[in-house]
Amino acid sequence: MNTSDETTLLERFKSRISAGEKIEPKDWMPERYRKQLIRMISQHAHSEVVGMLPEGNWITRAPSLRRKISLLAKVQDEAGHGMYLYSAAETLGVDRRELIEQLLSGQAKYSHIFNYPTLNWADIGVIGWFVDGAAIVNQTMLAKCSYGPYSRANLRICKEENFHKRQGYEIVATMAAGTTEQREMVQDAVNRWWWPSLMMFGPSDNESPNSAELLRWKVKLHSNDELRQRFVDLTVPQAQAVNITLPDSELRYDKKTQHWNFGKINWEEFWNVVKGNGPCNRERMAARQKADNDGAWVREAAVAYTMKQRMNR
């Protein structure tokens, strides 16, 4: 393909994007667009899969059958969401195995939030409320993104995640209205998860290397800071409703902007966790690697069986 063809194609691509059209797998797209999408979608997929671990930690200890069942259903959904997202990435010409190996080798990233431990049952409530709450803000935007398969995957995820946030908030509200110990558990969990949840939206856009490009291509429609602000504005009244204090002394409502102002985020902590030095990075990776290693003979057997059946036919 010569340069002038490439320029024409790029112009046409840009005009399709600005007209709000969806790009589909077989359509022409700039190599950067494809690469950025693969990186972003696979990170999203890895996050769903690794995200099963901190919550899965409490399935066997859930305090009632109702809670046990809804937590299991929720963690199961995360596996489903991981699958939808891997499939969306696969439409861009990568193989799921390839992506999983990138995760297992430490080459690919996943959301830093899942490197924090779940220490008491209230963590399960707070994760549903904060972490799923933040994810929904992000995914609602991504459901409108320019890449068709990614947009459809997020649409499906948003539909299913409706119950995740509610089951989390219900746990929080029940415990907040419960015994002194339960209130303490919730407050403790809120104190530990609040700031890491704000970090989930990523660094401020002027420090985020990928943001401008992703916005231009309408992979993202809002900046990290805008999404973070939306999350804070949604969450503060929800905390007030159950008499829970968010651990930020600078939290103030600004009547003029109609937004909640909040304090400074400790980005040093964020980068430290991203680089692998969070409280649970090693455990999370070890758990995924173990599942993959222990499962290798099973996957191999399934393929071998199919081959034999085909040969016998």
């Binding site: 699958m83 696969e90 799921r96 299913e160 399934a302 393929v303 199919t306």
Partner: peptide, 23 residues
């Protein structure tokens, strides 16, 4: 509805059922 991975058609059908019909 989407896609899944499986070694053969019976497992594919079961996986599709578990993933896309669980609601």
């Amino acid at each position: 509805a989407g896609s899944i991975h499986a070694a053969d058609s019976e497992l594919a059908l079961q996986n599709a059922r578990d993933v896309f019909a669980r609601r």
